[in-house]
Amino acid sequence: MDLILWRHAEAEAGEPDAKRALTSKGSRHAARVGAWLAQQLPEQCRVLVSPAKRCLQTADGLGRRYTVHEALDTDSTPERMLETCGWPDHRFPALLIGHQPQLGELAALILAGTKQPWKIRKASVLWIKGSDAEDNLPFIRLAVGPELIGKLR
C-alpha cells in the first residue's frame, strides 16, 4: 500500500485553531502541489482529510473528492491515523492531509519503528511505499515541497 502524507499549507494565526484559514501564500502552495499531485496519484487513491479548515482548503487544491476524518485532526495520534487508512494492508493507496507533529510522527513510526519528532514542512508531501520485493520494508518514494513542484513539471 502506498501512503502519501500531505501537510496542510501555510495558515493564518489565530483562534479557534480549527477555523484557521490558509494565507494567500498557503492557497498558492496548495493549488500548486494539489495540481501536481493530482497527476501523480493513482485513480483509486483514497483521500482522507482532517476537519480543520486549513486542511479542507489544502485538499480543495487537489480537485478530487475526499472524506473528512476526525482521526486526522490535531489531537489525533499516528496509531489512530494508521488504523483509519488501513496501513499497511488496505487494497488501495491513501493520501492523508493533516497536521504536524502527527504526520511526522506517523512517518517515523512507519520508517524507523518508533514515534520520533520528524518534521514535514507546510504544503510538503512525503510518499511512502509499503514495501518492495527486495526486503519487504517500507521506503520513501518521494519527498517534495511546494518550492520544488514547479521544477518537476
Rank of each mutant, 00 (worst) to 15 (best):
V33E: 07
R46P: 06
T58Q: 04
G86D: 06
L3T: 09
L3W: 07
Y66T: 00
D60N: 12
S76Q: 09
T77N: 10
R28I: 12
H69N: 12
L72G: 06
W6D: 01
S24G: 02
T84C: 13
G14V: 06
G26N: 01
D60M: 11
I4H: 05
V49N: 01
A52P: 08
L41N: 11
Y66V: 01
W36N: 09
R28C: 09
E70H: 08
L62Q: 02
R54S: 10
L3C: 03
G86F: 05
A9C: 08
E43S: 14
T67H: 12
E43N: 14
G86L: 08
K53I: 13
W6L: 13
V68W: 01
P42A: 14
A35N: 04
A35W: 04
R46W: 10
R80Q: 13
L37C: 05
D2F: 09
W87H: 10
A21Q: 13
C85H: 07
G63V: 04
M1T: 13
H69R: 15
D17G: 06
K53D: 06
A21S: 14
T77I: 09
P78Y: 03
R64G: 03
K19E: 15
G14F: 04
W36I: 09
P42Q: 11
R32E: 15
L22A: 07
L41R: 10
A18L: 04
S24D: 15
V49L: 02
T23P: 02
E70T: 06
E83Y: 06
C45A: 15
D73I: 02
L82G: 08
V33Y: 11
K53G: 02
Y66N: 03
S76M: 08
T77G: 10
I4T: 10
R54A: 08
V33S: 09
D73E: 12
S50K: 04
Q57C: 11
